Computed example of a mutant assay.
Amino acid sequence: MKNIKGFKVAVALYTVLVTASCSTSPKGDGTLTFVESNENALTVCHFDQVKNTININLSELVEDLKIIRFENTDNAFFKSCNLCITDHYIGIRQSESLPFLLFDHNGKLKCQVGAIGNGPGEYSQTIYDEAINEKTGEIYLSFFFSLPKVLVYNTDGKFVREIVTKEKLSKPKVEVDDNGDITIIHMPFTYNKEKFLATVYNKNGSFKQELKPTPNFLQENFNQDIFAYHNVPEFSFWLSSCDTLFHYDKNANKIYPKFKMDFGKMSETPLHIYNELPGYYLTAMLWDKGIIAVNKEKQTSNYARLINDFFGHMEAPMFNFSNGWFYQMFEPGRLITQIEKRLADSDCSAKDRKQLETMLESIDEEGNNILFMGKLKQKGK
């Protein structure tokens, strides 16, 4: 991954920091540097100055907590998955060679979306990203590599159309506006004929605009990745080769750098992933090194633990936020283990104990998965 010096070159290519000035926040645990211009503000968190760990209650981030028990029919069972949650639906992206599933908030299977195969509306490649838009009543699936299209289905799982792109997509991320415009960001390669970083099509699949990549975004191989968790109004994404979280402004057709970690003079950069919430920038330090949370409003940075104060004050995964929702999926046996572990804690209150024991008695160990989920509170941009 590139260091901060390499990143400044990338920023210069976008001319967003031509008139930049820097300031350092005196607040909080880790020092934050702010690089500002007329158009943009970039936050830099200095890794070696983040020391302390704080607890964040889940109720500070989400409106409430729903517990979803998925139905126990054969077609509804699933194992490994990624989730796409909306106000009325839960989309389940399964592992390779298994179809996308759509459930309601009661855990009832509504439909299988499309089918595995090579015919119209079918897919045999791994789904890489998805969007469910309740305004348009449609589901959008994009695929891992080398397909120049996004497939569109209705919420009955029936194939509607495909959006054909100018170039084959590589690890594409998608977002859909209420009017049906679809924005795609993918990983452009040096050998692509029609290189683009971002592109927009209308609901009928007609091309509207694209943003060409500057050299720092071009890839020689498939070793890098794009991450986009769709938790804020802006199209927030990061490409690991640039090691910076960016916003794509569709109206201006520009990319703005928003956040990165500065790892200083470390000989080897720790593996990490960025996410963004309305109130925080998150950095997952892999291999159990913890989550760094940068509070945008307070301008502080700390390691953070998420406490589910809706349910037994169990510890929850701090990084599990996607599509504007918190999620925590449990196989029944694992949830039983987690509850028993919490019940054994000396600080488990009588109120929490009653709630946990009631839940424990209700779990069918042979049943389908159980989902904890809550909608993110939205703050100002």
Rank of each mutant, 00 (worst) to 15 (best):
D178F: 03
F330T: 13
M285C: 08
I127M: 06
W325M: 09
I273E: 06
N368H: 10
G107T: 01
I4V: 03
S23L: 01
N221G: 08
M359P: 01
T86E: 15
D74I: 04
N57C: 00
G312C: 01
P215Y: 11
S267H: 04
G264T: 02
P213Y: 13
V152M: 11
E234R: 09
I67Y: 07
L83Y: 11
L98V: 02
Q355L: 07
W238P: 02
C45S: 14
L147V: 12
N308G: 12
F189T: 09
K381M: 03
K377R: 12
L343K: 14
Q209H: 04
P233N: 07
R334N: 11
C81T: 12
N154Q: 08
N251Q: 15
P148V: 07
L271E: 08
F196Y: 08
K377L: 10
D64K: 13
E297C: 00
S362R: 06
F100E: 01
T165R: 01
N82Q: 05
T199S: 14
K341H: 10
T269P: 06
F47S: 03
E63N: 12
N308I: 11
D262K: 00
F259Q: 10
Y89K: 12
S206G: 09
L218F: 10
F100I: 00
Q49H: 05
R305A: 11
F326V: 06
E276K: 01
D64W: 07
R334A: 11
R342G: 05
L101T: 03
Q338R: 15
N106R: 12
N3C: 06
S37R: 11
Q328D: 10
D345M: 04
Y14F: 13
